[in-house]
Nucleic acid binder design. Structure first.
Length: 299
DNA sequence: CACATTTGACCATT
DNA sequence: AATGGTCAAATGTG
């Protein structure tokens, strides 16, 4: 058993995990079909088994074969899952006195906890409403990084933010690294407008990177090599979904026929906290394996 | 008019 | 000083 085994198990796990919600959605509207429920149960069992297998492999790397030190390092931090809305993080809702010069208080620094990354071809479709608040050219990258905060921050004090960084690799579709900070606390805040992304409705995020070939859904949104241009296709008002509880099987309250959801990052509510180990693309030699190996629950 | 995006400036950290 | 993250005025859009 080696790295290849870990990768294979992890890939199967992620595939099931990603496609499970589609089945659940179908199942929710076809209760009368026992075969669907059977498939649902089987998938649930498979998920648990694979999750457990990955956990064992990770805890006994000697048995599972060598895992690159960088991966292990990145998976080390064990911090509360992204969905946890801690009280102190609420306290950080510093109104930052719009008037004067803002100052990053120590409380603010204490609040930087939940952070996780996701590699996806559809960085703007994760079921939440995001509002762009900045764009920056980051050293060592070809594309600008865009910063988003929760659309309902002002209404609910939701501290969720994310930034999207297109990878340098010339993949088609382009791959993005999405870094989330703080889970959403706005929950099921209602929106009125429906998603009308330029991308096809069934786009599904896929964990992976440049050379991922399997299961990548082509999105129609073009990218002309400038992240800012790609942003023009962002649909800010998307039907929000509740964060699925960590590895808990539940139907998602969204219409999968309208908006693809890249909620895999949530199912890893226990996802290892990922600290930026290095700048730019040096984060990992193999981001795909990296994500796969850090997104399962450790029992 | 309300809301979202753009973009230069500001601030904290290293 | 360089860098990354955020603010907020200006601008765009429906």
């Amino acid at each position: 058993m080696g790295e290849g085994a870990v990768r294979e198990v992890a890939q199967v796990y992620e595939r099931i995990k990603i496609q499970h919600p589609l089945l659940l959605h179908y199942y929710s509207s076809h209760h009368h079909q026992p075969t669907t429920q059977l498939a649902h149960n089987l998938l649930s069992d498979a998920l648990r088994a694979l999750n457990l297998a990955l956990s064992v492999m990770k805890q006994h790397p000697a048995a599972a074969g060598s895992v690159t030190p960088r991966i292990v390092k990145a998976a080390e931090p064990q911090i509360s899952p992204p969905s946890a809305a801690s009280a102190d993080s609420q306290a950080i809702v510093t109104s930052t006195a719009r008037s004067g010069k803002r100052r990053r208080s120590s409380v603010m620094m204490e609040g930087k906890k939940s952070s996780w990354v996701n590699f996806t071809t559809v960085p703007y479709e994760d079921g939440y409403g995001w509002r762009k608040y900045g764009e920056k050219k980051i050293n060592g990258t070809s594309y600008t990084r865009s910063y988003f905060r929760c659309t309902y921050k002002d209404d609910t004090g939701c501290l969720a933010t994310k930034h999207v960084q297109q990878k340098d690799c010339n993949s088609d579709p382009p791959m993005f690294q999405v870094t989330y900070n703080n889970g959403h606390t706005c929950k099921n805040f209602t929106t009125t407008t429906a998603a009308n992304n330029s991308g096809s409705s069934n786009d599904l995020a896929l964990i992976g990177c440049c050379n991922s070939s399997e299961g990548v859904t082509i999105i129609s949104s073009r990218n002309n090599g400038h992240a800012g241009a790609a942003m023009n296709n962002i649909k800010q008002e998307q039907p929000p979904v509740l964060l699925p509880p960590p590895l808990e099987i539940s139907a998602l309250p969204f219409d999968a026929s309208r908006s693809g959801e890249s909620w895999d990052q949530y199912s890893a509510g226990d996802v290892a906290q990922i600290e930026e180990a290095s700048a730019g693309d040096g984060l990992l030699d193999d981001p795909e394996l990296f994500v796969l190996c850090t997104s399962f629950k450790v029992y």
